[in-house]
Design a protein around this nucleic acid. Structure first.
Length: 644
RNA sequence: GCCGUUGUAGCUCAGUGGUAGAGCACUUCCUUGGUAAGGAAGAGGUCGUGAGUUCAAUUCUCAUCAACGGCUCCA
């Protein structure tokens, strides 16, 4: 007998060779029907795989992350089976589960797959699922595996096999489909009850754009139709808060073919948001000892040769314009200009840390396929600043920047983000990264220590650093699940030397300062895109383009309403009046839809009592009060930047 | 940049080888109404752009631009 230890610590004995599924059945039939896989000694196994030794066991169902991914992985195989039956001769690459569903990459030769085909494939998958075939695991020798795929003529699987060790190769078969796969898989196809193939895309083989592009089909499946319906419903909801949709509805920004791709024009409402953000940044930076600067949008080639940007980033800069025999580039970063400001006057250690900030406009020639609403654009306004400091000052300066992030995030109620410590990749020194191995090591450790000391949770990622040093990126996700860097805090040990920046030390030596590049609010474009989705378009009052709408019940009360409006404007509150000859219900509806935080309703009652009735967007009637009291209250809310 | 999809009124979308339609929004008039849509009338588009096929193109073909879904990229 073997001993099986359950998550709650209970130990039970079973015959050797029993499966997780058998064990589940011994507990309850209901549970057995839900088991998708099992974690055996911490390793995810097929629920149908026999266990021969004493083990710890956790049964995995749809409620567990690993259960879902196993389910989707098996769904990818089911899809491949359907594809193979419809498109004989198709060659497969890989088909993993992803965060929401799965995909499979394949080479269809000259054939093209269409949206119509997806429907046919879904139908076929449903048929195959109903046959309730079991997923059968088989260990196979490398030679036999190579033989199998040679006969099939699948060079992609053969390529995969090259990297695998003999003796550790497994095949999985369900129905008429056999695939090279390490598994695990769910017990039978019948568990897959709801199927939706979501999109067709191209994907480079092995993710390299020099390679052939394969066809990728994305899909998602569920153990019940209800869950698929809920998922589709959720997608609809997400679409409603897509910043591109809200940005248009709320008059935040626009783009135009005649202006160019990725070039945002901020409309009056968007400009209010920008100005409020800048006000916040200026207050915050002023309090933190930053000075403000303003620099031009272009610079000569020589500066970007000095900075080292050109060799690394020429492709993503707009091509230069030639003037008087000189090449001028649109700036794609503000740092070189700021370095020139640092260098304009001699510095001593007494001047450090020297902090200069600018909402700098930069232009980046992003690949056309990359552009995405406000999140990825070609002209951006950075909440930029550079801190020049000594090595001793570095940790406290870097920590102060991180604290500034936290302060901002608290104001905006930003909770869902990932702090990413982005490190270099040693094999790319001299190519993607400045060739200074010692400095990389040293500064990466400095940054890591600051994070650890500040007790900030973070993840470390290789090969994501800037060319001039390691950085901390704050990663956020758009409503449709795309990941973006919202804010960044970077170390630069390179440009100080390139620009020959120096300061005089206390013992009259010259030193090169360390530089911190930071942008806690990222860019206006990305930050406002993020905020639109974060608030679902309902900006807190301090950011709202229009803060109060005055709604007279009828035009008999227009004069009184006008007086209310004047009082609000005098108090610097962004307010408008709705004088249309519409019923109050209609005016309220339109204002609710425009997501204006406050409505003031005035009619006979208010005129008689010299009061105003207040309604909060999304929350309904808030009672009546004097106009003075209302102004005091809303001003307090605006001043403290609360809400949201 | 690559693969795929799409492009008709301000918005959402229907439609046709014989020079276009709906709902909402908009304008005007009537209604003076108390917390999420009052009624009527009207105006608005050379069907993304350019070329080709055709007696005739918004519809078919090609090119081009842009948007969208991915891939690659992202200082």
């Amino acid at each position: 007998m073997i001993k099986i230890t359950f998550p709650d610590g209970a130990i039970r004995e079973y015959q050797p060779g029993t499966t997780s599924l058998d064990i589940a059945k011994s507990i309850s039939e209901g549970l057995a029907k839900k088991v998708l896989a099992a974690s055996v000694n911490g390793e995810v196994w097929d629920a149908t795989r026999p266990i021969y030794d004493d083990s710890s066991l956790k049964l995995l169902t749809w409620n567990e992350k690993e259960g879902k991914s196993t389910f989707w992985h098996s769904s990818a195989h089911l899809m491949a089976e359907a594809v193979e039956s419809l498109f004989p001769g198709v060659k497969f690459w890989v088909g993993p589960p992803v965060e929401h569903g799965f995909y499979y990459d394949m080479d269809l030769g000259d054939r093209k797959i269409t949206e119509e085909d997806l429907k046919v494939l879904e139908k076929k998958m449903n048929e195959l699922a109903k046959t309730n075939s079991t997923y059968i695991r088989k260990e196979i020798s490398k030679a036999d595996a190579i033989d199998f795929f040679s006969k099939k003529g699948d060079e992609y699987k053969l390529d995969l096999l090259l990297g695998l060790e003999d003796g550790k190769i497994t095949f999985y078969t369900q129905g008429g489909f056999t695939d090279l796969c390490r598994g695990p898989h769910i017990p039978q196809t019948g568990l897959i009850k709801a199927i939706k193939l979501t999109s067709i895309a191209g994907a480079y083989w092995k993710g390299d754009e020099k390679n052939k592009q394969l066809t990728r089909i994305y899909g998602i499946t569920f153990p019940a139709q209800k869950e698929l319906d809920e998922y589709l419903q959720m997608l609809e909801e997400a679409k409603k808060r897509d910043h591109r949709k809200l940005g248009k509805e709320l008059g935040i920004y626009t783009m135009d073919d005649d202006v160019g791709q990725g070039l945002i024009m901020w409309m009056p409402n968007g400009t209010v948001v920008i100005e409020e953000l800048e006000k916040l940044a200026k207050e915050t930076e002023n309090a933190a000892g930053y000075k403000r600067v303003v620099t031009p949008h272009i610079a000569k080639e020589s500066m970007y040769l000095t900075s080292g940007h050109l060799p690394y980033y020429a492709d993503s800069m707009y091509p230069p314009m030639e003037l008087d025999g000189e090449k001028y580039y649109l700036k794609s970063m503000n740092c070189p200009h700021h370095h020139k400001i640092f260098a304009a006057e001699p510095k001593s250690y007494r001047d450090l840390p020297y902090r200069i900030a600018e909402y700098g406009t930069v232009y980046r020639y992003e690949q056309s396929g990359e552009l995405f609403g406000l999140m990825r654009v070609r002209c951006l306004h950075m909440n930029d600043a550079h801190i020049y400091c000594t090595r001793d000052q570095f940790a406290s300066e870097f920590r102060a920047v991180n604290e500034m992030y936290q302060k901002y995030f608290k104001i905006f109620g930003i909770e869902k983000y990932v702090m990413r410590l982005s490190l270099h990749s040693p094999d790319k020194l001299g190519k993607k990264y400045v060739n200074a191995p010692e400095l990389w090591k040293e500064t990466e450790e400095m940054v890591r220590q600051v994070l650890i000391e500040s007790d900030i949770p973070y993840v470390e990622v290789q090969d994501e650093a800037a060319f001039y040093g390691p950085k901390i990126d704050v990663q956020i996700f758009s409503v449709i699940g795309r990941e973006f860097t919202l804010a960044t805090n970077q170390v630069d040990f390179s440009q100080g030397r390139s620009f020959k920046l120096e300061y005089t030390t206390a013992d009259n030596q010259t030193e090169t300062p360390l530089i911190i590049h930071r942008a806690p609010l990222g860019t206006h474009e990305r930050f406002i895109g993020f905020l639109l989705e974060h608030y679902a378009g309902r900006f807190p009052t301090w950011l709202a383009p229009l803060q109060v709408k005055v709604l007279p019940i009828s035009d008999k009360f227009a004069d009184y309403a006008q007086n209310v409006l004047e009082s609000l404007k005098k108090a610097d509150i962004r307010a408008e009046i709705d004088n249309r000859p519409e019923k109050i219900g209609r005016k309220i509806r339109d204002t609710e839809m425009a997501k204006v935080p406050y409505m003031i309703i005035v009619g006979e009652k208010e005129v008689n009592e010299t009061k105003v009735s207040v309604r909060r967007q999304g929350r309904g009637d808030a009672g009546s009060t004097s106009i003075e009291a209302f102004i005091k209250e809303i001003n307090e809310e605006i001043k403290t930047r609360s809400g949201g």
